[in-house]
């Protein structure tokens, strides 16, 4: 993609579609200290944290409600979805410096296809899934396939994107080659996080206490994995041996064996755990939605430290991902 200056979209009563923000010079360098970028959904800010000192360096403003992030295929920009602010913000992923923003309707969760062709955005409030051409950020197709589209994941060949529909209780497969829906499956109450994993699709069922395993070809549920109340999102460890499931209602993390999907352990994590990242030192950086804090958890010792951030921290990105190839690969960003 070419960056924020590429979108000719209209906005009511506003002169420019892309606001002419002063674009600050990109100051990324290899010498940058590692930072965590935390998206405070309720505070309309992005907290930039020095991962070494664990101090907040600054808060970058957004419009209303930053939720999730996506790294551009060239790893040069971090896209922040501001859902009720109807905007995508562009940050330097190494420094957290804001580079500009662009108005698009209701971006909630977003992810580039592995081949870098498309950027799929779920519009949870407006009930549509928008597929954009990644290079130009122009809309390729808009799907209206259910109520409250929430999270998404692609097949490794980028041909299919799977989207959970929170209110409809379904998982939908969209064929990106033909831009047509392929199948829709009732998966349970309030599905949220979605992940392609070893030839199957996993989706966390937030209105229940499990992860559903689906056959990507047919959409048939082949297995359910018990986790904990309010299973929300799923993350693969950089060494690809374990899966972490955040459980919003129970306030816990469930660790699963990545190969067998068998239960490994439960970690108490009160405060509404949402998204998380794995740091190179093995620690987990976890956004706690209802605690206004980020938890830094050491899975070896079990110790957890907290860093105060803005209200309702949601998505979290750590800059060490830029050089940590196993972690990038685990997140399907390499």
């Amino acid at each position: 993609m070419t960056g924020p200056a590429s979108l000719p979209r209209r906005t009511l009563f506003a002169a420019p579609a892309l606001l002419a923000l002063p674009t600050r010079a990109r100051a990324a360098s290899a010498a940058q200290p590692p930072i965590a970028i935390v998206l405070n959904s309720g505070g309309a800010t992005v907290s930039v944290i020095d991962m070494t000192t664990r101090k907040i360096l600054r808060d970058e403003p957004t419009f209303r409600e930053p939720s999730h992030w996506a790294l551009t295929p060239d790893h040069k920009k971090l896209l922040i979805a501001d859902s009720s602010g109807n905007a995508l913000f562009f940050l330097d992923p190494a420094t957290g410096t804001e580079l500009g923003h662009k108005l698009i309707p209701d971006p909630y969760q977003l992810w580039f296809s592995p081949d870098g062709t498309y950027l799929t955005i779920t519009c949870l409030r407006l009930n549509h899934v928008d597929v954009y051409h990644a290079a130009s950020l122009t809309l390729a197709h808009r799907f209206k396939l259910g109520s409250m589209p929430s999270h998404l994941s692609y097949t490794p060949d980028s041909r299919t994107v799977f989207v959970s529909m929170q209110d409809s209780g379904t998982l939908v497969a969209i064929d990106l080659a033909n831009m047509t829906p392929r199948w829709t499956t009732k998966v349970g109450k309030t599905p949220a996080g979605v992940m392609w994993h070893d030839g199957v699709v996993l989706t966390a069922i937030m209105g229940s206490d499990h992860v559903a395993v689906l056959d990507p070809a047919t959409g048939r549920i082949t297995r359910t994995i018990l986790t904990d109340k309010g299973a929300h999102n799923i993350f693969l460890t950089p060494d690809r041996t374990q899966l972490y499931v955040t459980n919003r209602v129970a306030g816990s993390l469930t660790v699963l064996d990545a190969r067998t999907l068998g239960f490994v352990k439960r970690i108490a994590m009160p405060g509404g755990p949402d998204d998380l990242c794995f740091a190179p030192d093995g620690k987990l950086w976890i956004a706690l939605r209802f605690a206004s804090r980020v938890a830094v958890h050491d899975p070896v010792t079990g110790a957890t430290d907290h860093i105060s951030v803005g209200r309702s921290p949601h998505g979290i990105f750590i800059s060490t991902l830029l050089t940590d190839r196993p972690a990038l690969a685990a997140m399907r960003l390499a």
């Binding site: 906005t11 419009f63 309707p105």
Partner: peptide, 29 residues
């Protein structure tokens, strides 16, 4: 808000906010 924003989005518009009407306000919450 969902109804109106959806109606506008389907026609290629993004709903207004003070900060988009007056861009200089952005960053001064």
């Amino acid at each position: 808000q969902v109804q109106l924003d959806g109606f506008l989005a389907d026609r290629g518009y993004v709903p207004p906010m003070l900060e988009t009407i007056i861009p200089a306000l952005f960053g001064h919450p």
